[in-house]
Design a protein around this nucleic acid. Structure first.
Lengths: 177, 177
DNA sequence: GTTCACATATATAGCGCCGATATATCGGCA
DNA sequence: TGCCGATATATCGGCGCTATATATGTGAAC
């Protein structure tokens, strides 16, 4: 799914600047299951403007670059709807953590323990984030949040119960790959 | 994490051709949590060869292009070990499925139901794959497989128990975004 | 017995996108 | 005062995915 489609989707929730769209992907409600950054968002908005799928209204600001507020056009709404009817790609789960653990038998036990502690801490932090519903969330966002909560919970449970399996395999002393 | 590092890791499990490495990411034990394809693997192997991190032995084949078998060098082993000591990026979960559901309130109910059925079927298929341990798996691979199993189980449970929440929100009749 | 899809095997072109950086200003904190 | 982080736009370099080209063997379907 291209960033143009993601931007179209973001604008369904209201007019926004490129900066604001970036925030939705970075910290906002999209951040847990979508990716996009400046390097793709700004060019995407330009392409969408050219194609008439969004409009751009520059708002003058004193001593700052103009704030460019983008809005979905009717044509853009149709395009998004069309995109949403396309076959959906499989979810993707990518983990450098698991990659590293593939070599647990070649790593010092302390390294593996530290990795595990860090990972669990990070997961618990995200779990807390996802446990807080927001009154402004749409039903879809709430569903995604709960889905994330379920997955993070399962991850934490698994790692807490099974970490010993991998830690036992790590080498006691010096690492030698 | 760059594809060069992933290739180094793949070669720890034994000498291999670019084609075989690709299979590890496509169907093999890595496929559930790592990404890499021809377009990145072949260039990566060339770079690694130039840097002396792997060696390449061309094996002549009748009426076929030479099979190029790559092996890790001592320098390559050290490089991998170094890479494994670096800070590990957060796991990434990317889902076009959840993105689409953000707009459930704008989609026809049948579309949402079909999506949900497809997704559950796909998840169950993966669950079956992950339920089968392989005698050749290293402990790390087995851990990753069980981790995957736990996550897919949780996903399936969640979707089966909560799908009604999002299906109720979908529009009864025609779609209009 | 022939067709046809699939597996083996390497390689590259096009293009999309991430990460970092540049530019400029304001508010808050120390 | 000095510095950091937030606001806001935009681009560059390089990495990597998708699709394609090339060539042939294998096995299943019909």
């Amino acid at each position: 799914m291209q960033v143009t489609t993601l931007c179209l989707g973001a604008l369904v929730f209201g007019d926004a600047t490129g900066y604001e769209i970036n925030k939705m992907f970075e910290d906002g409600p999209f951040s847990h299951f979508l990716d996009a950054s400046y390097g793709s968002i700004y060019p995407a908005l330009m392409r969408l403007t050219e194609e008439g799928l969004v409009t751009c209204k520059a708002e003058a600001q004193e001593r700052r670059p103009d704030k460019k507020i983008y809005s979905l056009t009717e044509k853009g709404r149709l395009k998004l709807r069309e995109a949403l009817q396309q076959p959906i790609a499989d979810d993707k789960f990518r983990s450098e953590f698991l990659f590293t653990l593939l070599f647990a038998h070649l790593l010092p036990r302390n390294r593996v323990r530290t990795m595990m502690d860090h990972r669990l801490a990070a997961l618990k932090e995200k779990l807390i984030e996802l446990s807080q519903p927001d009154a402004e969330d749409t039903p879809g966002m709430d569903f995604a949040r709960q889905y994330g909560y379920a997955i993070y919970s399962a991850s934490i449970d698994f790692l807490e119960n099974k970490r010993h399996l991998i830690e036992e395999i790590a080498t006691e002393e010096e690492a030698h790959v």
